[in-house]
Design a binder for these strands. Structure first.
Lengths: 340, 340
DNA sequence: ATGAAAGCGCTAACAC
DNA sequence: GTGTTAGCGCTTTCAT
């Protein structure tokens, strides 16, 4: 590969020292502080730099300054629509703030999450945004304990002192359940799964709370063992047989399977059974305008997490106290959305 | 941030030189070549490294060796399902081959694509995988011309000497059209858009070729101006009024809008009009088992592109000759798929 | 306002 | 087999 233009080349051609070039190049971006370079010198340096299309070597810069302007993002699966959209927003924010982002997927596997974090650390990320998974607490604690700024996204680890940005899942679930009750449904059940993940637990308790508040004692939370299609289908059919009036799905994947089961067996929404879920999908609002879902504030997730993380990076003292940002949910009928 | 353990610390504690430590650390991974370290020394070094959980500083390594083991991927939009899945596979491959991946989105904007490439170059990527967009030819040429290994993905730039990994879109379109003809349809039209992008053009010519081959002279390719919902809806309604028997959508977004238009106006597949598209969506096979679509070999896209790129990086002489990899398409009815 | 010089952590030649 | 040493390109005191 053709060797790139360096600060030394520019210094030589402009007849100044490398230090001066460095100063001009980096302070140019930062706006005026104690800017002390003679305008004509600056101009000359800038011209030479432009002439050769000088690009600073970020490895050298990082090595020297310890500032990498790189952050690592570990999601459970970047091909999941919700996380893909979050990634998109994170990338966007990063681009405009001159940060670079490394993405990794954990596949809900704590061992892999830990591996990815390690790789990211080697690569010199300044901080990490992490969607924790079941069993990843200790690995994350260790990483954060080693001084790495960490912000949890989407899910919090209950009881742990981590900064995080999550949706108010409890409230979302309460509103959703109350909306269902408001529509006249009484026999409302939830399809969740066995987990300790905060977002899911909160969705469960929100449902229970709202049902209780409405004086409905007949509650039920299904927790399929493997969360595969067969199980979900079985639960849906069984629910239908028992005349359940509304089903709330707590995860994206299960709601996809749930929809599939509805369709396959000719169950209509809302006539046969109402369908409610967290995270919308192209697959839903295209067909059934009466589905109820929680609209996740994707961009806010990204912006809040990045802003918080960068603050922690730049003000290590602030990183001590953990900040928890709770985003407000919006529960909507897909019919109220403008489509595609 | 707590200062990390360096090669120097380890050398000191193990009573050897930094060079030896470096040698042990890097050749350990590479398996046996001319491995010339006394086993006991190696053991000692490894132990000390493990004790302090030594992690090499990749900036320093990159600065020194010129090897970054980082590749940049510029897609049009990472939140688009197709690209999200590709990203996932690329990330996966990279993880297992000890590479790091930087993602960027161009939003089909050549200016932004160029910007992202520049940022990636600064960050020191060893090569790039790029989904070119309309008008990005010159920027990509310039990048490739400067010695940066580049592999085009999904779309090729006709006439240009770039290595690329694309689907055989022409063939896919031919098969798709022939399948439609085989099902007895005669009045088949295509919804595309005004572009010079190779994948779209190939889809168009495949359709024309197959129609011609079947002796069907009545062909028509719609090219809406803005590709918004109103336009697509209009085209669909108009097609229905003219008794068009099958509609082929050339892009993911337009097929989503097309489906929406079908649903909104109660058009049934296959009774009222057949629906065919490239790239499947959760939104399709969930509902209409008779949709015809091209199954993109996602993993192959990722693996081929990464393998090719890494080869170009490691063997600069091979980077001279451009390699074009054409992936075989598979045209399927969504009903033949196992769902969710 | 500008320059000299000392490294950041690592690798690659070359010496022993 | 193992150590010495010279930088990679940049930032950052500290002089001037």
């Amino acid at each position: 590969m053709k060797s790139r233009i360096t600060i030394t080349d520019i210094a030589k051609e402009a007849g100044v020292s490398t230090a001066l070039v460095s100063f001009v190049m980096s302070n140019k971006a930062k706006g005026s502080r104690e800017y002390r370079v003679r305008p004509e010198t600056e101009k000359r340096v800038l011209e030479v730099a432009a002439k050769y299309d000088y690009q600073p070597n970020s490895s050298a810069r990082a090595l020297r300054s310890g500032e990498y302007r790189t952050i690592g993002v570990v999601l459970s699966d970047i091909s999941n629509k919700f996380y893909a959209e979050i990634s998109r927003q994170i990338e966007n924010w990063a681009f405009h703030h001159d940060y670079v982002v490394l993405f990794g997927s954990s596949d809900e596997n704590p061992k892999k999450l830990s591996n990815v974090m390690k790789v990211f650390k080697n690569k010199g990320v300044d901080g990490m945004i992490i969607v924790p998974c079941e069993g990843s607490e200790s690995a994350i604690s260790q990483m954060a304990g080693s001084g790495m700024p960490v912000v949890l996204l989407d899910r919090d680890i209950p009881g742990a002192e981590f900064s995080s940005v999550v949706l108010n899942n409890f409230k979302a679930s309460v509103i959703m359940t109350e909306t269902l009750v408001g529509k006249g449904f009484r026999k409302i059940e939830m399809i969740s799964y066995k987990t300790t993940l905060s977002n899911i637990k909160d969705r469960e308790s929100g449902y229970l709370k709202a049902m209780e508040g409405a004086g409905l004692t007949e509650t039920r939370i299904h927790r399929p063992e493997y969360c595969n299609y067969r199980e979900i289908e079985q639960i849906v059919l069984d629910a239908k047989a028992r005349n359940v009036e509304a089903l709330i799905f707590t995860t994206y994947n299960m709601s996809l399977m749930g929809r599939k089961a509805f369709i396959s067996h000719g169950l209509r929404v809302p006539q046969d059974c109402f369908f409610a879920c967290f995270n919308n999908s192209d697959a839903f609002d295209l067909y059934e305008p009466d589905i109820l879902y929680v609209k996740q504030p994707i961009e806010q997730f990204a912006v809040e997490a990045m802003t918080l993380l960068v603050k922690m990076i730049n003000e290590p003292e602030s990183a001590q106290s953990c900040t928890k940002i709770i985003l407000q949910p919006e529960v909507v009928f897909s019919s109220s959305e403008v489509h595609v």
